[in-house]
Lab assay of single mutants.
Amino acid sequence: QLNAMAHQIQEMFPQVPYHLVLQDLQLTRSVEITTDNILEGRIQVP
């Protein structure tokens, strides 16, 4: 299920590496919260 959620987020934010999306999802278990984390700059994109 997390993989499906990660792919959904990757479609919206292809610039964010998959492993970072998955790592955040493991903590949040939420597409909405992880999306917010990306938008708020809480996930550092190399």
Rank of each mutant, 00 (worst) to 15 (best):
A4N: 09
H19E: 13
N3G: 10
P14F: 04
T35I: 15
N37C: 03
F13N: 03
A6M: 07
Q44C: 10
V21K: 00
L25V: 05
I38V: 05
V45W: 14
Q26R: 12
P14V: 04
N3I: 15
V31P: 07
E11H: 13
I38L: 07
L20N: 03
I33D: 08
Q26C: 12
Q10D: 02
L39Y: 06
P14Q: 04
E40F: 14
D36G: 13
I43V: 09
N37K: 06
Q10K: 13
S30H: 03
L39F: 05
A4P: 04
I43L: 14
I33G: 07
R42N: 05
G41M: 06
Q8C: 11
Q10N: 10
M12D: 05
Q1D: 14
L25Y: 02
V45S: 10
L25K: 01
Y18R: 08
V45L: 12
Q8D: 07
H19N: 10
A4E: 12
P14H: 04
I38R: 00
Y18D: 03
P17R: 04
E40M: 15
T34R: 01
Q23A: 14
I9A: 00
I38E: 01
N3P: 08
R29E: 08
R42P: 00
A6T: 04
M5V: 06
H7R: 15
A6I: 10
P46A: 11
L20W: 08
D24A: 04
E32C: 09
V45R: 08
E40L: 13
T35S: 09
I9C: 02
L22S: 02
L2A: 04
V45M: 12
R42W: 06
Q8L: 13
I38C: 03
I33A: 13
I38D: 01
L39P: 00
I33L: 12
I43R: 02
I43S: 01
V31L: 10
V45E: 08
Q8I: 13
G41C: 08
Q26M: 15
Q15N: 13
Q15S: 12
I33Q: 12
L2W: 14
V21H: 00
L2F: 11
Q8H: 10
V16Y: 09
I38W: 04
E11G: 09
F13P: 00
Q44M: 12
L2E: 04
P46N: 11
V31E: 05
M12K: 12
A4L: 12
Q8T: 10
P17M: 05
P14D: 04
R29C: 12
V21R: 00
N3W: 15
H19D: 13
Y18H: 07
Q44P: 12
V31I: 13
Y18N: 05
P14C: 06
E11R: 15
V16M: 10
I43N: 02
M12R: 13
Y18S: 06
F13R: 01
M5S: 04
G41I: 03
H7I: 12
D24Y: 05
Q10C: 14
L25Q: 01
P46V: 11
Q8V: 11
Y18G: 06
E32Q: 13
L39S: 06
Q23N: 08
D24I: 08
M12N: 08
T35N: 04
S30W: 02
D36Q: 15
I43F: 08
A6P: 01
R42A: 05
